[in-house]
Amino acid sequence: MKSTLRQIGFYVGLLVVWQAMASAKIWPPYLFPTPLGVWESLREGFTDHSFWIGIGISMKRMVVGYLISAVFGMILGLLLVASKFFEDTVGRLVVSLQSLPSLCWVPLAILWFGLSEKAILFVVIMGSFLSITISTETGLRNVPRIYAMAGRNLGAGWAQLLFFVMLPASLPHLLSGLKQGWAFAWRSLISGEMIFVTLGLGQLLMVGRDLNDINQVVAVMLLIVVLGIITDALFFRIVERSIRAKWGLTPAS
């Protein structure tokens, strides 16, 4: 309760300072947005549906790209744990490729797929799936041996051991990897959209720049932040909380 009040106070203060700085007219209005201007831009964007369309298209790309990354990322993570050969060969490659910023995949994507939907999906996938692979792998490797032994002892075959013991046992770790993967996918998507591909939130940002409309630029930035927070709160935080409660990882308070 107290911390909520504190947060509200903080944001109200921020708005006031922002408005004060805008009113002081230190910078010309086309370089420095006003709260009211941003609000106006948000309202306009939503009433003429351009923001809705942008959100819809970006989210669709996000969901499709992320699901593909999650599935492939987890499968590759499993393979890395299951086979020493994979670990020595592909495992090393995965770690080095992970250091590549996702934007570096854009030129390749354009050359391979043209300015298409496929290209943006490719960038999203490349931006996120390696981090999911790595966290799946470390999650599985960190499962205490006793769980596998107990599972085997209770009559689990290898597939049962994988699905009923190893995967659930690595879930806390896996989940933080999936969350990180989602954040990476989101970043890759927006940056990808800024460089090519029409519609989507990244495109709206660039339109704002092209029109010299600083209010729209800031409005879209706000939108991106808020969407990130909402998905995090709606999905990951709920799942994470229930897992932590089950495992007893959080204090009872």
Partner: peptide, 30 residues
């Protein structure tokens, strides 16, 4: 290993992601 010989480990190896009942059901489910 086989279900005719069950070992109870010193560290037990109970599954923290399952309830007490689900832990007991585990071997039966297998």
């Amino acid at each position: 290993p086989g279900p005719d010989r069950i070992i109870i480990f010193q560290d037990l190896g109970l599954f923290p992601w399952l309830t007490v009942r689900e832990n007991v059901e585990f071997g039966l489910r297998m």
